[in-house]
Amino acid sequence: MPQATFKVYRGDRSGGEFKDYSADISEGMVVLDAIHQIQATQAPDLACRWNCKAGKCGSCSAEINGKPRLMCMTRMETIPIDQPVTIQPVKTFPLIKDLVTDVSWNYKINKMIPPFRPKPPEADGTWRMAQEEVDRVQEFRKCIECFLCQDVCHILRDHHMLGDPEAAAAGTATGTAPGAETEAPPETFGGPRFMIRVASLEMHPLDTDDRLPLLKDKLNIGLCNITKCCTEVCPEHIKITDNGIIPLKERVVDEFYDPVMWLWRKIFGRKDERKTLQQLPVVAK
């Protein structure tokens, strides 16, 4: 049975280092199996978050040989084992211990997004949508919130634009990213995961809320320079940039940057129902 060496990051907020472990590799194994084997035989105190082992819970995100991936969906036969396999926590978020990071910033961003607000039902008391309309937004609902897209996004990863979501929502730039070394408070970029959450609501045929000002001013969609790394790492193969972020950017252009569209709205008015039904009760998502 072949053996592989794993260089696993061990440490917490005070510091850490890579430690070498070995694991027996058998057919069909995934990286998470190897981590479990290491936990069982060599490092019982190795911290690792996991749950479904089926690529659906989004818990076991890590960086395997430098690439953000789900450990449970990375088969060992796809990784060369003639040299040590590096496993480290996702870089973008603060470390808690070993392979476990604090991703709570994401949930704060999520709270900034107004939930689904449907238009009134039809005369028979129901809502109807065409299947084709459902299909478009259904793609975004496949997200498992593994936050690999957030991890690989260079705006968050390298430029640390993880400002305080509450300050961003209030319009006051007083946020500070945890441990950020920059002097000025960082801007907030919502990140790819929340761009597609907004897309799933904004493109919903029954939704009436307008999240474009939020996208432009609070989630800062203009910071995205569309380098598509989020799409490359998505384990659900959601076309985050082409189907989510770029269409949203185009809608922001419609609303805020295109003088012809502005003139058109001035002359012909707004045809959609958004902004006219905002007093409707919120329906829980």
Partner: peptide, 13 residues
């Protein structure tokens, strides 16, 4: 390679 991750203040450099 990334080598050791500086965790000063909880943030990797």
């Amino acid at each position: 390679q990334a080598g050791t991750l500086d965790q000063t203040g909880g943030r990797q450099s």
